[in-house]
Amino acid sequence: MASISLNKIRKAWGPVVGVDSIDLEIRDKEFMVFLGPSGCGKTTTMRMIAGLEDPTGGEILIDGERVNGVDARDRDVAMVFQSYALYPNMTIYENIRFPLRMRGVPRERHDALVREAAAIVELGDLLDRKPRALSGGQRQRAALARAVVRHPRVFLMDEPLSNLDAKLRLSMRAQLKHIQRRLETTTVYVTHDQIEAMTLADRIAIMSKGQIQQLGTPDEVYNNPANVFVAGFIGSPPMNLIRGDLENGVFLGAATRVEGLGDGTRRHVILGVRPEDITLAVGAGVHLASTLYSLEPTGDQTLVSVMAGEQMVVAKGPRSFRQELGTPIGLAFDVSRCHLFDAATGERL
């Protein structure tokens, strides 16, 4: 268990900047998720914590100890990768045991530690099998047990569920969260999947272009996005973002008029509203009047899409809603749940 401090961490390869002067405090026992698109710097940041990459600038502290220049093997961190990285010629027992042999743990302790780690990930009855005899989810649990067996100060996980199918990802998310809470080990988890981030994290660091765009709990980043990037990245479907003008508290955009927003200053803005905060409406309550562009039944709801100029706007409608494409349709926004962003900077107003 350990806290992690990143102080002005930077990583560049010549003129190419991968991580741009990040400051971040990761608390002891915290489950921290780095979330962002490919190339945003999240994996590079984690690799610098692990000691697999040397920072170009700044310092990294684990439990108050500066670890810049300390070999990866001496940082007492354990990594779980996207690929399972199991030795195919070894049994699962020997795969889990391998870190104990490498770190010189007394041999008489091996069996108890291996079986304890296997029990945590529910693989106790599969220890005599080779990796090829296991499913993808079982192999990923074996890789997790190999990290757990060391009782490290920090777990570092680089998109460990991305090779699994949707059903396995769902069950593995639940197991990961349960294991982390049980072991109370500080965990840094890298993903581009915002559902994983929202369900696993204590806090999320949302990254883009080598910088942290917002740091907060899942509720904070979802309900109060700091800028247009965060608003459009978090959520499935993501927040609708409609460009327009705000004057005297009235937003005017393509096919859109919303009263009761902001102040009397005229400015170019982006109106953000989540699909679940939009209802199908008629008459005086309509904020956006258009025609039905697409209809996507998902079982528990129906995604209703219309066009506001060149911007597609998506609402979550009742599961029973059905209409022909091209049918006139009105949408009403929950004004108390609308967000305004500066059109020039993208920052939340």
Rank of each mutant, 00 (worst) to 15 (best):
R169V: 01
S294D: 15
A147Y: 05
F233C: 02
E347Y: 08
M102D: 04
R243E: 15
D74N: 14
P106R: 15
L200K: 13
V221Q: 10
S236G: 07
G18M: 08
F34A: 08
L6T: 04
E122N: 12
T45S: 13
V16F: 06
F321I: 08
T291W: 07
E220V: 02
D71N: 15
M48F: 01
M307P: 09
A284E: 15
D28E: 14
S3H: 11
D263K: 09
V80W: 05
L280E: 04
E196Q: 12
V148Q: 11
A255S: 15
I270Q: 08
A174E: 06
R203S: 07
L349K: 01
E324M: 12
N95T: 08
R132E: 03
R103G: 11
A118S: 04
T345G: 02
G330C: 08
G39E: 10
A226V: 05
E30I: 08
A226I: 00
A315N: 06
R181Y: 04
L349Q: 02
G210E: 04
E94S: 06
E30C: 11
T279Y: 03
R181N: 14
V114T: 03
P275A: 13
S290L: 12
V221L: 10
E159M: 06
F341K: 01
Q301R: 14
E347K: 15
D74H: 11
F321D: 00
K29P: 10
G137P: 12
I26C: 12
L127A: 11
K42C: 13
N68S: 11
S162K: 02
V70M: 15
L176V: 04
I62G: 06
E276A: 13
D111N: 03
L325C: 05
E259C: 02
V258F: 00
Q82V: 01
N89Q: 15
D63A: 09
E94N: 14
T191K: 09
Y84P: 14
Q211A: 13
A78G: 09
L24H: 11
M207F: 07
K177E: 11
A117R: 10
D111F: 01
K167R: 10
S38G: 10
H110W: 03
G330R: 06
H268Y: 01
G262K: 05
I60H: 03
T56F: 10
P297C: 08
T217N: 04
K29C: 08
L156Y: 06
K316P: 00
L349V: 00
L271A: 01
S294C: 09
L340N: 02
T45N: 14
V105M: 13
R243N: 14
R243H: 12
M157P: 08
N227A: 01
G283Q: 10
A142Y: 11
I96N: 02
E25P: 12
Q82N: 04
V17Y: 07
I62L: 10
F229S: 00
Y293C: 07
T265A: 15
Q211E: 08
Q138T: 12
I22H: 11
N224K: 04
P328T: 07
I206S: 07
T217F: 01
V273K: 03
R153I: 01
L280V: 06
E196T: 03
P225H: 07
V77L: 09
P218Y: 00
Y84G: 05
G137E: 07
A205D: 11
A254P: 10
T91V: 10
K8Y: 02
A255C: 12
R267Q: 11
S336E: 05
G299C: 12
I329H: 01
G18A: 15
G244E: 02
L215Q: 08
R257P: 02
I120T: 13
I60N: 03
